[in-house]
């Protein structure tokens, strides 16, 4: 399966100012140091091969939306952040090009604004013939989605959507067969609760989506459950919004985790890869890149045996599991 990141930012969408782009271009030109390029492709190769990520690219600013792509059949999507708008359009392109059905299975971590705000802009929801199943650990998922399309918040009411939309509440402690995936979930510490999802495909490959999950300092004994949920996963997408110091001081009880707790949990679970996710909206690309490098270093310092590969998720990233 492939994991496509359509939105990786936490809490609030962000977009670069004109000055941010000007700064990147300036740094790129300075790094090129007068070099000339015979073609745009050659210039692109320079960007890909020689510029650091934060100069040549951006981690992006859309909020949480991650696709579990099995290459055929229904689409599987975790969360409906602002990245969902772009996914919706791309899915229709794939339906036309590849003959895939307009069938969508969503798995919601929770119902906070940044995780559902993309749904009113999800074009397939407006299409008669499209089928949408919204899976959630929360029984009030439908209420949350309907409420954000009430007149006070949005011009198009939920009932005007033409797709066949169904809601399904899932329970922890069970494994569900949904499409071609085995799916289980775990309750996490977050305001109004959140849920992490574990997906296993028919080849036995496992991807875990665990965002908006605070690992409470006075409940460390309970982390064995999280380690069990991450056990031997091929990929864990993990909330790494804050530094550890922030999670135990000013931002305690804000419902998020840190990069180094994520590494420790993945080490304990013998996971193969960790994707840093739900980036702090106040972070610049340079800040995220610094956090990424520090996380890689922490993993090296604390590694027991097999290395854990650390990836920094960004909007547009697609990785094979």
């Amino acid at each position: 399966m492939h994991i496509r990141f359509w939105g990786t930012r936490g809490s609030l969408p962000v977009a670069p100012h004109a000055s941010t782009i000007a700064e990147k271009v300036s740094r790129a030109l300075f790094a090129a140091n007068g070099r000339s390029f015979a073609s745009e492709a050659a210039a692109r190769a320079f960007v890909e091969g020689e510029l650091e990520f934060a100069v040549g690219k951006t981690y992006g600013g859309a909020t949480s939306c991650v696709e579990i792509d099995l290459g055929a059949g229904p689409f599987v999507i975790c969360d409906m952040g602002s990245g969902l708008r772009e996914f919706g359009l791309d899915s229709l392109r794939r339906c036309n090009a590849e003959g895939r059905p307009q069938e969508y299975h969503f798995f919601l971590s929770h119902l906070h604004w940044d995780h559902i705000m993309g749904f009113p802009f999800f074009v397939p929801a407006f299409l008669a013939g499209a089928k949408i199943v919204i899976h959630a650990g929360h029984a009030d998922a439908e209420e949350a989605l309907r409420r954000q399309q009430e007149e006070i918040s949005f011009p198009v009411p939920f009932d005007w959507l033409k797709a066949d939309i169904a809601f399904r509440t899932l329970e922890t402690g069970r494994e569900y067969r949904i499409g071609r995936l085995d799916v289980s979930l775990i309750e996490q510490h977050h305001s109004h609760s959140s849920y992490g999802y574990r997906f296993r495909d028919d080849r036995g490959k496992v991807a875990v989506y665990s965002t908006d999950s605070e690992h409470k300092i006075d409940l460390m004994h309970g982390e064995a459950d999280v380690v069990g949920f991450f056990e031997a996963a091929d990929l864990v997408v993990c909330d790494t919004m804050y530094s550890l110091a922030d999670t135990v001081s000013m931002k305690e009880d804000w419902g998020h985790s840190s990069n180094i707790v994520a590494v420790d949990l993945c080490h304990a679970a013998r996971a193969q890869r960790l994707a840093l996710f739900h980036h702090e909206p106040t972070y610049s690309d340079a800040d995220i890149q610094r956090m990424y490098r520090e996380t890689i270093r922490y993993e090296e310092l604390t590694r027991d045996d097999a290395p854990l590969e650390v990836i920094c998720a960004h909007d547009g990233l697609c990785i094979e599991v």
Partner: peptide, 12 residues
């Protein structure tokens, strides 16, 4: 020292 810096524990 590196771990304290990465975790930002050297700030608290």
């Amino acid at each position: 020292r590196e771990i304290l810096a990465i975790s930002r524990y050297d700030r608290i």
